[in-house]
Design a protein around this nucleic acid. Structure first.
Length: 578
RNA sequence: GGCCCGUUCGUCUAGGGGUUAGGACGCCAGGUUUUCAUCCUGGUAGCACGGGUUCGAAUCCCGUACGGGCUACCA
């Protein structure tokens, strides 16, 4: 298709959720794949939910991931402005057009009146049936309406949804979707404060910005019928964009994070949260029941069926547990489960509203991208590793899945490990340097590059470099005693003193030379690799885990490596003596 | 409750009338490695259920169950 134009249209209400990032990614991929345009549009029509810094966050997050818009606020483009708050006059114009053409009407019902109506009848819907008995320009006389408008009576504008029509549209992911217009309510188009609702602003902007494809989350599927009606009423049915509704990202499967130790903890947390959120059920001891359900993991879904005969407390707790365990991935899940669900860290007004991001957790952007791309889409072959460029080439909306996918942090970590292993040493060195500095260390570029080269196969996230390899920068904090008790004797200690002298005398402290020295030593005293190398390792690192010991010693340098041998072997003596 | 969408190993998924139901993560075992990790080999585990259509159904149809979304002057 020529001139394909797609947009990512987030609302600046806080940190951009990982699901939003995926929506942005899919829009970007589709646009790039077809040589089209990718637009960033800020949907800031809700003044009450506007959050300072959220727009900046969105821009930064997309930038970190390399999902760069062609048009947008701060970028420019021929279809601006790209913030909806700056387009008020435009929405007003089209709202008037809808009123004039009889597709929309003024409604003067107050929020309280509507609330009351809903309280009386929970199924209340502002539709063709009820609009004739509400206070609006359909039920009122022309004079009454004019007077109300002139007197500044607060009002909204609603879409006049036709009765008894079938609204059909083609979804790129789901195929044909049908709604009976009698089921649809008269959605508010223009709010009391003069701002448009999502529905109005979205449709108007998509048309004016000549958007050809709307790719968005499944939560919009239900209101798409309204949008189709809006396009029709505005006379834009021919230019209506194609729709693709993405499946949701769901919470991780409880089976993946619950084990013997976390289950009681989780049960207590769930019970506490339930008590906090539902004071009406205070006194109900939920812990025991939560344990019972969580322990029998395989049966969670079946068990969670809420039966009417259950006592109210139990039924309410079951329903609560179900949504806490399954359902859409939420902001709080990150903290609760100990991994990020946001691209970047976000510092909100409170602790409650602050979250760690993938970047700060130690993920590489390409790993996040790769993981996210495959959550709800697949190329149809068995390729798993994709660069952004490769994704552009392989992407096709037809291959987007219909059902929601559970977030799986283990898979994300695996991708990250793969990308770390394949990353350039110089790049990793720069990413790791801040951690050293935070711990009061400095290192040369050459040393750092050597360090990451030795450690990168052992790092899943960036902080692992420091946490598992701190001993490259400071002396071991202690020595794992088990191997020392097993292999070290005072008799051997005397032999090892000889090895220290040999190492100290070495003119060329290269890996090969160190190795040759160690081998000569072993041969002379009838020792095996297993007798000597663990001792060298422990003296250098304090732990049995780590990279190749001779290479490690070369990187540390002769002076430091030999010093560590001396200090270490002395310590070993004390350990076996005590 | 109503409307809409969905359901293949624990998870992400391929497969869309005849397949030993394939791959990846995880887990387990073995190999390589002085250790850990990487890497390699193998294993574990799945078509929600009930009807139908058909010679034959994971695949098509209907129903049920389950899951999700929407049901605001929020997006």
């Amino acid at each position: 298709m020529e001139n394909m134009r797609l947009r990512f249209a987030p609302s600046p209400t806080g940190a951009l959720h990982i699901g939003g990032v995926r929506t942005a990614l899919y829009n970007y991929l589709l646009a790039r794949k077809n040589g089209g345009t990718f637009i960033l549009r800020i949907e800031d029509t809700d003044q009450t939910r506007y959050v300072e810094g959220a727009e900046q966050y969105i821009v930064e997050a997309l930038q970190w991931l390399g999902i760069t818009p062609d048009e947008g606020p701060g970028i420019g483009g021929d279809y601006g402005p790209y913030r909806q708050s700056e387009r008020k006059a435009i929405y007003l114009k089209y709202t008037r057009q809808l009123i004039d053409s009889g597709h929309a009407y003024y409604a003067f019902d107050t929020a309280e009146e509507l609330e009351n109506a809903r309280e009386k009848d929970p199924t209340f819907k502002y539709d063709a049936m009820v609009r004739t008995r509400m206070r609006n320009s359909i039920s009122m006389s022309e004079e009454e309406v004019e007077a109300a408008l002139e007197n500044g009576v607060p009002h909204v504008v609603r879409l006049k949804v036709p009765d008894g029509e079938t609204v059909l549209f083609e979804d790129l992911v789901r195929g044909e979707v049908a709604f009976d217009s009698s089921e649809l309510d008269d959605k508010v188009l223009l709010k009391g404060d003069g701002m448009p609702t999502y529905h109005m602003a979205n449709v108007v902007d998509d048309r004016l910005m000549e958007i050809t494809h709307v790719v968005r989350g499944e939560e919009w599927l239900s209101s798409t019928a309204h949008h189709v009606l809006l396009y029709r009423s505005l006379g834009w049915e021919q230019e209506m964009p194609a729709f693709a509704h993405l499946p949701l990202i769901l919470k991780p499967a409880p089976e993946s994070y619950l084990d013997k130790t976390t289950t009681p903890e989780m049960a207590n947390r769930m019970a506490a949260e339930f008590a906090r959120k539902h004071p009406e059920h205070a006194g109900y001891k939920a812990e025991a029941f939560a344990m019972q359900i969580l322990q029998d993991k395989k049966n969670i879904p079946a068990n969670l069926k809420v039966k009417e005969k259950d006592p109210a407390d139990k039924a309410a707790f079951k329903a609560f547990l179900k949504s806490a365990l399954y359902g859409k991935l939420s902001k709080r899940d990150g903290d609760r489960l100990g991994f990020p669900v946001f691209p970047l860290s976000w510092k909100g007004q409170s602790e409650e509203d602050s979250f760690i991001g993938f970047r700060e957790y130690g993920f590489l952007p390409e790993a996040v991208l790769n993981f996210l791309a495959l959550l709800g889409w697949n190329p149809g072959d068995e390729q798993e590793m994709f660069s952004l460029e490769e994704l552009v080439g392989a992407f096709s909306p037809e291959r987007i899945n219909k059902s929601g996918s559970r977030f799986n942090i283990d898979k994300a970590k695996w991708f990250n490990q793969q990308y770390i292993i394949n990353a350039e040493d110089a790049r990793l060195a720069n990413l790791v340097r801040p951690q050293l500095e935070a711990n009061g260390h400095k290192a040369s570029d050459a040393f750092l590059k050597g360090f990451v080269a030795l450690m990168k196969e052992r790092a899943v996230t960036l902080p692992d470099f420091w946490e598992n390899g701190y001993y490259f920068f400071e002396r071991p904090r202690g020595y794992e005693e088990k191997m020392i008790q097993k292999r070290w004797t005072l008799e051997r200690s005397e032999h090892f003193a000889e090895l220290v002298r040999d190492m100290e005398a070495l003119g060329d402290f290269s890996t090969d030379a160190i190795k040759a020295t160690a081998e000569r030593f072993m041969e002379k005293h009838g020792l095996k690799f297993g007798d000597v190398l663990p001792m060298l390792r422990l003296a250098q690192a304090g732990t049995m885990k780590g990279p190749a010991i001779f290479e490690m010693m070369e990187l540390l340098g002769q002076e430091e490596a030999v010093a560590r041998l001396k200090v270490g072997f002395d310590a070993f003596d004390k350990i076996v003596q005590s």
